[in-house]
């Protein structure tokens, strides 16, 4: 079971830009996007850790896959 995040918390992160407004429920879709992004990140880091023959995901694994993933996350 996944933990929940408060909507206000997410909204405050999205409000870094003052002139951007979010419509009703648009923040929930962002939440979904975030979860999918983390899912992808986690799976790729695990694959990377597996290549290294370690059972633990270490920062270097995450760093290695993050660059590629952020590129993919461009809209």
């Amino acid at each position: 079971m996944l933990k929940k995040i408060s909507r206000n918390n997410l909204k405050s992160i999205l409000k870094k830009k003052p002139n951007v407004r979010f419509g009703a429920n648009a923040d929930l879709m962002v939440h979904l996007n975030l979860l999918l992004f983390l899912h992808r990140l986690a799976e790729e880091s695990r694959a990377k850790a597996f290549e290294d023959k370690t059972a633990t995901i270490k920062p270097l694994h995450v760093k290695a896959v993050s660059k590629n993933l952020l590129k993919k996350a461009r809209g």
């Binding site: 996944l2 933990k3 979860l35 983390l38 899912h39 990140l41 986690a42 799976e43 880091s45 695990r46 850790a49 059972a55 633990t56 995901i57 270490k58 920062p59 995450v62």
Partner: peptide, 14 residues
């Protein structure tokens, strides 16, 4: 969330 999806041990300094 991350470790839920990763399904393996995750180092703390991640």
């Amino acid at each position: 969330v991350f470790s839920h999806f990763a399904k393996t041990k995750v180092s703390r300094d991640v």
